[in-house]
């Protein structure tokens, strides 16, 4: 029985001894030392690219504004002369596709 208080204060002190050590760049140093990723990067890019194109097509087909864009693109294809009213939707489409590909291009 007389040992109980002794054990308590020592246990408490030992547990208090556990303090948090801040990262301070430790994780970054580990990641920098990891071997360079070589495999599957191109697979990821292809998948993201296909998903981006599919998303653009689905958006154009399913949403009301999309019909306006697709109609204009079709007219642009069949047009004999370029007009600003036809170029604008083409730029919108190009912008959408470009924005969709930004994650693919910037992904590390």
């Amino acid at each position: 029985m007389s040992n109980q208080p002794q054990r308590d204060w020592l246990d408490d002190a030992l547990k208090e001894n556990a303090r948090y050590i801040s990262d301070n760049g430790f994780t970054a140093s580990i990641v920098a030392a990891l071997p360079v990723r070589q495999q599957r990067d191109w697979v990821r890019s292809v998948i993201l690219g296909i998903a981006a194109v599919a998303g653009c097509v689905a958006g154009l087909v399913l949403f009301p504004g999309g019909k306006f864009v697709t109609d204009c693109v079709l007219q642009l294809v069949h047009a004999k002369a370029l007009q600003p009213a036809l170029i604008m939707p083409a730029l919108v489409v190009a912008g959408l596709v470009g924005a969709a590909f930004i994650p693919v291009a910037t992904e590390k």
Partner: peptide, 24 residues
């Protein structure tokens, strides 16, 4: 599965303190 360095960095971030404290 994907050799995800970001995921491994998160694991390191979570466990670095107790591992380093133990080694100290």
């Amino acid at each position: 599965l994907d050799d995800d360095h970001h995921a491994f960095a998160e694991l390191v971030r979570r466990h670095q303190s107790p591992v380093r404290a133990t080694l100290r």
